[in-house]
Design a protein around this nucleic acid. Structure first.
Lengths: 196, 196, 196, 196
DNA sequence: TATGAATGAGTTTTCATTCAT
DNA sequence: TATGAATGAAAACTCATTCAT
């Protein structure tokens, strides 16, 4: 008893949209295709989402919230900068692999969002980046990270790996998500550690 | 003779398409907008390009050819693996900065190409990656590069930086293209060099 | 007892519909907007009105009944034709100004009613016109009103003023409703009075 | 030879739109119905008109221009105020009868125009009214028209008749357009003439 | 080579109304 | 009485592409 018999309309639609947006692209997916894949009617969909754009933003919203909360959690635990940074990097990579379709959509379709929402996404990503940068700065202050490379370059050097995952990583491939997360984090940390 | 009096239609269209695709996105750009921006008529455009897709592919074609020829040229010069790899990396970064709009389109719009052309692009990028991997392998064989990380990860770790450029680099920003190219290449090489 | 605790649903809906229909137009007003403005739910509204059309007709019904009853009342009082006609004209003008939003809807949206109801409205307006015409005829018979102009023209000449009110009269403007009612009635009576 | 074989798309569409808007109303007429009645495709229609609203405005534009040019022409001829006013009134009435469908749409559907265009229509109608008022003022100055009634009321008293035509006049009815124009103009002039 | 009117299938969105609860 | 999720038909509009000239 208590089992949810009725699949929630909003959930089914979101799921179908994610699947289609990530495989065919936002512009190549029609609302018709989404509702068919979700097994609901167009009217029902528009009862929960005000537009196709709204559906896209829901995916962004979810990713942004998730990333933010995980970053908060890890930084809250405290510890030496390098240790925290390592934990953050591994976690971001792992999470990004778990949410690979979301990532595909995330990086590919920002420009399809309404202008206001693009700004909102940019704002929240900047917030996230600043928080990330603060950890690196702490490491620089304590002498473990190099400071002869602009912060922007360092940040980009790491997030490019996150970004790129959906372009090459295949879950069915030889590397597990944990291995890849560790390996990439190692490469990154090695490159920014102050040489002794 | 030889004086180019008439602006070439195909060139003007390609230029306008690149500009619009990179700023507004392929799907958000209509053929009408392209021909208006190019100052030609629709009929004229369709005389030179068979479809909107064709226009998009022209941008890919140009990028792929350019990258290939530069890689060929540098590898042809020969030299120690690390030296060659450094030259290749710096060159790719610099070229990618010079062709930033092309890069924006390149990474954002592959899924908008016809299936056949997507395969063609994939094939040529794989070719390029293999050539790049060969240099890394040579360095591994000669003991200068580490071999405890899968090649796929190493490759991705570098190309992610190339890819990510259009997401963060601004020509009007503080860093010159040469600086960034050097810095990123340093970070990359430091991370893959065998520790002594 | 007697305290009206609950705002009547039907009244609130009618009030909101009138407001919206008169400002935005019937076609530009959605049922959703009406129920929101009325502070009720869609289900509640459909409990009292069978359709949006029904809501529109309620406005007509109210106006037609009101006009009819006032005309009946005035004619019942009797008196010389010119005196009666003057009273009727002044009253119609004043009432129309008091119910300006209703008038806006009344004259603008007949064609949005169902065919049956359009006929019903036409029927009752004809009835009203005939009663009005009877007064004029009485005045013609007694020699105070001219009879060299077709009755249809005379009638139209007056009702056009009533009709037009919502197009130019502004309650916040310089003229009071009584002044305008008197002035227009004077103009009308002067034009139909038999010259001596 | 020389006969226009090809019915112009824009003309056919305008004609069909006028017919449908005047009989069924703007909101009750779909673009589909218009293009079917005009015998053209939707795409062709949108080649000439940017929106359904555009189609509606075309009708307004035509009416406003026509009225303006006729008023200009008559006032340009000059003469005593009463004579000019009579000519203007008769002409407006006659023209309005000739363009009865346009009038129906004109007075019924202003609120369906985009806000900008509503303002444009208001502006041009005010211009027209001012020009009309100037004639009345001249007559007041020369002592032939009464000045004990606000100008706004006088103006409204006449234009209400113009407005109302489409609500009662039927070309197939007993009165010819010339008769009605004369009769209504007489009624109006009688009511505003200064009593002696 | 080049024009630009025309096509027609497709798009997103709206909305009055119904109905299980 | 009242809810509000869901329906389904229709709406306006877009746009890559074609083709007679």
């Amino acid at each position: 008893m208590g089992a949810m018999r009725t699949k929630n309309v909003a959930d089914e639609v979101t799921r179908a949209a994610l699947e289609l947006f990530s495989t065919r692209g936002y512009a190549n997916t029609s609302v018709q295709q989404i509702v068919e894949a979700a097994g609901v009617t167009k009217g029902a969909m528009y009862h929960y989402f005000t537009s196709k754009d709204d559906l896209l933003f829901a995916i962004y919203e979810r990713m942004l919230s998730l990333q933010k909360s995980r970053l908060d959690e890890i930084t809250a635990r405290g510890g030496p900068a390098e240790e925290v940074l390592r934990a953050v990097c591994v976690d971001v990579m792992e999470t990004s692999i778990e949410f690979l379709p979301e990532g595909t959509v995330f990086f590919r379709s920002v420009h399809m969002l309404s202008e206001d929402r693009q700004k909102e996404v940019t704002r929240r990503r900047r917030e996230y980046n600043d928080q990330f940068a603060a950890i690196v700065e702490r490491g620089q202050a304590s002498g473990v990270f190099r400071d002869d490379v602009p912060m922007a370059v360092l940040i980009a050097h790491f997030f490019s790996d996150v970004h790129y995952l959906s372009h090459w990583y295949r879950p069915e491939g030889p590397e597990t998500k944990t291995e890849v997360a560790q390996q990439v984090t190692d490469l990154f940390l090695r490159s920014i550690r102050k040489e002794t």
